[in-house]
Write a protein that binds this DNA or RNA. Structure first.
Lengths: 345, 345
DNA sequence: CACCTGGGGTGAAACGATTTAACGCTGCCG
DNA sequence: CGGCAGCGTTAAATCGTTTCACCCCAGGTG
């Protein structure tokens, strides 16, 4: 079934030894042009394809990198993945994409698989804040880059965006617009980003000199649209509603928005919404969504570059911690509008 | 750098031969419990991880499958990928995700990489209608499943949704709702799905006994949000606008919708919009989008099952062509509103 | 007691590419 | 004419696993 033509067949066909064929493949300049052409011809005729397994076994350098994300269904990660993929494929590496779905078990299984594949390195957004599993990877000799998860661990690279600053940006904006009863719809505190964004929100309240009571946290089990819808329903059912909602990511925000709009709540007049990530769909939502933007593709590219650099020169590589700054993109969903605004119900 | 502990080290440590260690790993039932425990202990202490490259080299059976999609940024493919990933990881396979970005060159490069990796099989949505590159893969001995691209080629499996029927569903619906000047915003005819959906649209017009002039095709270079926005701007600039737009996918539709809504065009009163794929964001759009639904995860799962099945029993495997039926999901964006001010029939 | 049986284990030969040290050829110089 | 450098090529060793033929020994059988 598998391609049965090996380097040996090519050698026979071209009437040279296997070593020469190997040279043609890896150091074409050392072999005489005539021989080279002959070998190339044989490769073409036989449809020979290098066996990467054998190659890697001998040379010890793999050609794949692993990417473990929390949720492939989230366009944020998709955009990060695209950045990774671009950079990796330029360097001739394959990307093995794994989806941990926020489950430590799935994460562990995938990491195990990647270790067996002896990948060049692993880019991972860890499910748990506890980095022990990641460090074990590291100990097994693989380079690891933490994605979207800042750390000061000197043994690891990391690429992230300042989530605490992002949370602060969002809530400072809401307070400045005059919103007074803010609910933050947040993911489980197991997730690092969720905690950081909440801390930033709390910072904003404090720095504005407001009572801590203006900010309430509503936790949901996952950072996706369905959880957002659930949260929206809960908010609808309340006797006294908040006047603004800050969601830990855009998927939650879109879910909340959809439920509220359908129930006739006016956004932002009755209730403002701010999301996080600024995925492309945020701008195209029922009400264009204010959101905290992260340089998604850049995160992916940077992480891939780091892991490739590290595995090229493992010795002198010094681990870097890249932290990008988030940026608030204000759109209609959180703009205080004059009372005279036309209603679109 | 790479984990230096091999099966031989484990054998030494546990005072058994390498063969026995291999047995513990692969056929634990044939080795005596006492020995087994000793070996397991050694594996644990040494932190041994199997080297999949060596494994594959010897056994010939790889543990990865390749997935080549047109656009990872499109949630349709993300959902398909998730289906693939689920099934593959249940079977202990890694998924190597590649993004061809609708470019034949990128596709070729990725396919080459996958061939070198000797993946189990390749799930691919081909960029070109010409299947020659895919058939070459096949000839190199890899099982191939065409994704979202129907074929009758007896040497290949395929999993797809009936795009022609989908196009027909959409346009039949628009005609039934009384729309009379329909523009189909379509991708380049290089893309198979684009052509099929258009043919279905034409079918619908014909079957309804209408003049072919009610349907016009507006081609855009790619099936994404930006192209949709461009198309929306073009439509806006026209002196006589259509009263309905059918987009070849939801990303285009969201782009069109966004531009039109921002310009004050009422949807669906002034102009109806129908998309394709029914991605999750379609329901959460500015105006909830009517769309043609495809069983996205199921497509992925089915394809992965086929490729795994084929590589398990290559001999007696018979190639299947699975064709799912699309389903129209009607939402606000195309519902003729009860006789208010329009209704010019 | 000789013979068989079979569970439990061994050890060496693959797998296919890369790498390296050694080798043979050519042509130039002394 | 012999030696030697330089170049291209060869053959063999190697990577970590799996597989398979074979060995050893205890216990059962006739």
């Amino acid at each position: 079934m598998v391609s049965p033509v090996s380097i040996r067949d090519v050698a026979t066909r071209a009437k040279v030894s296997v070593g020469t064929v190997s040279n043609v493949l890896n150091r074409p300049e050392v072999v005489a042009p005539a021989t080279r052409d002959r070998v190339m011809g044989a490769i073409e005729e036989l449809g020979f394809v290098r066996n990467d397994a054998a190659r890697q076994l001998r040379s010890g350098t793999p050609r794949a990198i692993g990417l473990v994300v929390l949720d492939v269904g989230n366009p944020f990660f998709t955009d990060v993945a695209r950045g990774v993929e671009d950079t990796a494929s330029e360097a001739g590496h394959a990307v093995i994409l794994c989806n941990s779905d926020e489950s430590p078990q799935r994460e562990a299984r995938h990491v195990e698989l990647l270790a067996e594949q002896r990948v060049h390195g692993v880019l991972i957004t860890p499910v748990e804040t506890d980095l022990a599993p990641v460090r074990r990877l590291r100990d097994r000799g693989m380079s690891v880059v933490l994605l979207d998860h800042p750390t000061t661990d000197p043994d690891l690279c990391s690429v992230a965006v300042d989530d605490r600053a992002g949370g602060e940006l969002a809530v400072t904006h809401l307070l400045a617009e005059g919103y007074e009863r803010i609910v933050m719809v947040n993911g489980p505190s197991r997730i690092h980003q969720a905690r950081q964004r909440h801390e930033g929100a709390v910072d904003a309240v404090r720095k504005a000199g407001r009572d801590a009571g203006v900010l309430e946290e509503l936790k949901v089990p996952a950072l996706n649209v369905v959880s957002g819808q659930r949260a929206g329903e809960q908010l609808l059912a309340r006797s006294t509603r908040p006047d603004a909602v800050f969601c830990a990511n855009d998927l939650l925000a879109l879910g909340v928005l959809q439920v509220l709009v359908r129930a006739g709540v006016r956004v932002p007049e009755d209730l403002a919404i701010v999301g996080y990530d600024d995925i492309d769909f945020a701008a195209a939502a029922a009400v264009p969504l204010t959101s905290v933007r992260q340089p998604r593709q850049l995160i992916g590219r940077t992480a891939a570059e780091l892991v490739i650099a590290e595995s090229m020169t493992p010795a002198e590589h010094e681990h870097r911690h890249v932290l990008f700054a988030p940026e608030l993109v204000v759109r209609e969903s959180s703009r205080r509008v004059p009372r005279t605004r036309r209603r679109t119900r």
